[in-house]
Amino acid sequence: MKRTIRLLAAALGTGAAAVLAGASPAGAAETIGGCVFEKVIEAEETYGSLHTIENGPKDDLEKFEDGLGDCVEAPSPILPEVDEIIWGGAAFLILLAFMTWKGFPMVKRAMDARADKIRADLDSADQAKADAQRTRSEYEARLAEAREEASRIIEEARDRALRLERDLQARAEAEIADQRARAAADIEAGRRQAVADLRSEVSAIAIGAAERVVEAGLDTERHRRLIDGYIDEVAEDRG
C-alpha cells in the first residue's frame, strides 16, 4: 500500500515538473521589459537610432510609440497563452496516460487490497464472533451439565442418605429382634437348665434313697448272689 502511494506521488511530481518546464519560456518572452527591448532593437535596425526617430517624421514616432504601448497592454485574464495551453495540455495528457496506465490500476489494486483486508478483517471478526458464540454455547452447555451433575449428585446423596436411614432402621429393628430372640432363648435355656437342675436334684435324691434302700437290703446272701451272678456273666460273655 505504501509502495503504491509512493509511486503515485512520484508520477504527480513528474507531471508538475513537466508543466513548469514547458511554461517557463512563454513567460520569459511576454515580459514588458523584453517587449520594450525588442521594440527598441527593432526600431534601431529600421531607423538606425532612436534620435533618428525622435527627429524624424511624426508618423514614425507615433508608430514607435504605438509599438511600445502594445508592450504595456494587459494580458487576457481568462485565456492563457497558446504555448502555455500546449504545454499544459501535453502534461495533462501525459499525466492522464500515466495515471490510466499505472496510477488508476495501482489505486484500484490498493483499494481492492484494502477492501479484501477489510473483508478479511470482517470475516475474522465474524469468525471470532462465531468462535465466541460457540465458546459461549460450550460454556453454557458445560454449565448446564455441571448444574445437571450437581443436581444428580444431590439427588444421589439424598437417595443414599435415605437408604442409609432405612438400613440403620432395619438394622436397629433386626438388632431388637435379635435381642428379643436371644432373651427368649436365654429364658428358655434358663427354664431348661432349671428343669434339668431340678430333675438332677430329684434324681440324686431318688438315687440316694435307692442306694440307702439297696445298701440296707444287701445282706450276705444278696452279696453272694450278686458276686456269683457277676462271675457267671463274665464266664458266659467272655467264654
Partner: peptide, 22 residues
C-alpha cells in the same frame, strides 16, 4: 473290687472265668 470279701470258691471261679475270658 468288691464291697465284701469273696469266698475261696468265688475267688477260684472268678479266676477261672477271667482266665477263660482273657
Amino acid at each position: 473290687r468288691s464291697a465284701v470279701e469273696l469266698t475261696p470258691d468265688q475267688r477260684s471261679r472268678l479266676t477261672a472265668a477271667l482266665r477263660s475270658a482273657t
